Simulated assay, not measured.
Amino acid sequence: MQQNKRKEQQYRVLDVIISTLALIISSPILLLIAFGIKLSDIKAQVFFHQKRIGRDGKAFNMYKFRTMVVDAEQQKAQLLAQNEVEGHMFKMKDDPRITKIGKILRKTSLDEFPQLLNVLQGHMSVVGPRPPLPDEVAQYTSYDMMRLAVKPGCTGLWQVSGRNKLSFQEMVELDLHYIRNRSIKFNFIILMKTWRELTGKGSGI
Rank of each mutant, 00 (worst) to 15 (best):
L31E: 09
W195S: 15
L80G: 08
M145A: 14
V172F: 00
V126Y: 03
K64V: 07
P114C: 00
G122E: 09
S142R: 08
V150R: 02
F35G: 12
Q50S: 13
F35E: 07
D135V: 10
I37M: 11
K100C: 05
W158H: 06
T99R: 07
G200Y: 08
M145T: 10
I18P: 02
M1E: 13
A138Q: 15
R130H: 05
P114F: 01
M171D: 15
P131L: 00
E136Q: 15
V70T: 13
A44E: 13
R106Y: 04
S203F: 05
R55K: 15
L32N: 11
S125L: 06
K38C: 11
I37K: 01
P131C: 06
I98Y: 00
K151E: 11
T194D: 10
V69F: 02
G102S: 06
R55Q: 15
I25M: 11
I25L: 15
E173T: 13
L157N: 12
G102H: 02
I33N: 00
G200K: 09
R52T: 14
V172W: 03
D71V: 05
F186M: 11
N61Y: 07
H177V: 02
I104A: 07
I29Y: 00
G153T: 10
D111H: 02
V126G: 13
L117Q: 06
Q74V: 12
P129M: 04
V70H: 05
E86I: 01
P152E: 08
E86W: 01
I24V: 14
I190F: 11
Q9M: 09
P129Y: 01
T67L: 05
L198Q: 10
K103D: 04
T108H: 10
Y11F: 15
L39S: 03
I53C: 06
D56H: 12
Y11M: 05
Q9S: 13
S161T: 03
Q82W: 06
K51V: 12
E197L: 14
M145I: 00
L116I: 01
Q115S: 12
K51Y: 03
R196D: 13
C154W: 03
L39M: 09
K91A: 08
V13H: 02
P132N: 04
D135Y: 07
F65H: 04
T67A: 07
E136C: 06
E112N: 12
I179M: 08
D135G: 05
F48M: 05
R6P: 01
L110D: 03
L148T: 06
Y143K: 12
V127D: 03
R106G: 09
E197W: 00
R106H: 09
H88R: 08
L157P: 01
M68R: 04
F186I: 08
T194Q: 08
I205T: 12
K100T: 10
K51L: 11
M1G: 13
G128K: 02
K51D: 15
Q82G: 05
G54A: 08
R130L: 01
S125A: 12
R66I: 03
F188K: 04
F35Y: 14
Q121V: 01
K58A: 10
V127G: 01
S40Y: 11
Q3R: 15
K107A: 12
I42W: 09
I184D: 07
R130E: 11
R66P: 02
Y63R: 07
F47R: 08
M89G: 09
R147V: 08
P28G: 04
L148W: 03
H123C: 06
F60I: 02
Q50R: 10
F35P: 02
R97Q: 12
D56P: 01
L148S: 04
